[in-house]
Design a protein around this nucleic acid. Structure first.
Lengths: 185, 185
DNA sequence: ACCTGAACACCGTTCAAGT
DNA sequence: ACCTGAACACCGTTCAAGT
């Protein structure tokens, strides 16, 4: 019944990659409380303490997930696009990321340090682009980012009322269009 | 050493009111993880299970706190004010409530049901007032509420970097002014 | 290097028992 | 009506021990 104490003969094969993937699943498939070190270990068929050889702790696990998901927002950026379109693209991709991972977003707000890294890159880029079309780039960057966050949270709260999420995404695009139109008339 | 089993001779005097007050303290004085049924009971000098005679469970405790804090936003409403000023007042009071209780706001987003009650009142009132000054009241209600939420969360995240919160409140007022100015030109 | 069980200090909540 | 201790099923994390 009881397995041997040490490392099993054939490496069970838990690595950072498999841990992150399983963690994201566990986080999003429930009400956001499903991701625990113990549940994660169980899903991977391993002891909880085994995880601590690959991630420092629970908070750093969240940080790693944040880097992965929100990092994609900065990638896939097109060349030679007008500032207004850069801004639009960036915010839409950001909002989509929130929509695909609402529980991660929620979890990250409770662990602000997890967010600082990637968030800084996005907001800096946004400010630079806004400077081309408005005389108050910082003010409008805050407005647009805060609005994206708030709308993302509405998305997160709409979980459990399925089918509503796509509608909210469409609404975000509408709202963003109104804001951008008012920004630089 | 061990106290008697049943109800103590002199009623220790835990009631719904004292529970809610202590819960709010516990929630806001730390990193948002300080409010647990067990810690709450300890602070009140009582057994955890005693609390369950006054509140149904942890989630309903959060719901009660939400009703109390966000309920104030609808109160204290002035008579005979122009729609634009009603909107401004409502959103500022709402944002202030978030600023005074950031951890509650954060906790509530993870417990969406806790928010539904009061939130509905505020958004309905807001929509009605917006109808007087714009042809797209629902769209702008969403923009303004989402923005207030996002800005409130920035406030919540700024906890731990003290002194920054008042600055962010001032920034919210600035942002709101720009939005309202653009709304009905 | 990597996995293990045991342990410690926590959770929310149910239940039967006391006054 | 209200408070109790014991119990159950959970947490994150440390530590010493195994291979």
């Amino acid at each position: 019944m009881s397995r041997p104490r040490g490392r099993p003969a054939q490496g069970a094969g838990v690595n950072r990659e498999s841990i992150l993937a399983a963690a994201l699943e566990l986080l999003e498939e429930g009400d956001g409380k499903g991701l625990s070190m113990r549940a994660l270990a169980a899903r991977l068929g391993v002891t909880p303490m085994s995880l601590y050889h690959h991630v420092q702790d629970h908070a750093s696990l969240l940080r790693a997930l944040s880097d992965r998901i929100y990092g994609e927002v900065m990638d896939g950026q097109e060349e030679g696009v007008a500032p207004l379109e850069v801004i639009r693209g960036l915010l839409c991709r950001y909002h989509d990321a929130v929509g695909r991972h609402p529980q991660l977003t929620l979890a990250i707000f409770s662990e602000p340090a997890a967010f600082a890294g990637v968030s800084r890159q996005i907001t800096d880029h946004l400010t630079a682009q806004l400077a081309a079309i408005t005389s108050e780039p910082v003010l409008w960057r805050d407005i647009l980012v805060d609005h994206a966050h708030g709308s993302g949270l509405a998305l997160a709260s709409a979980r459990g009322r399925p089918g509503e999420a796509p509608m909210l995404s469409e609404r975000y695009r509408q709202a963003l269009d109104r804001l951008l139109a008012r920004l630089a008339p």
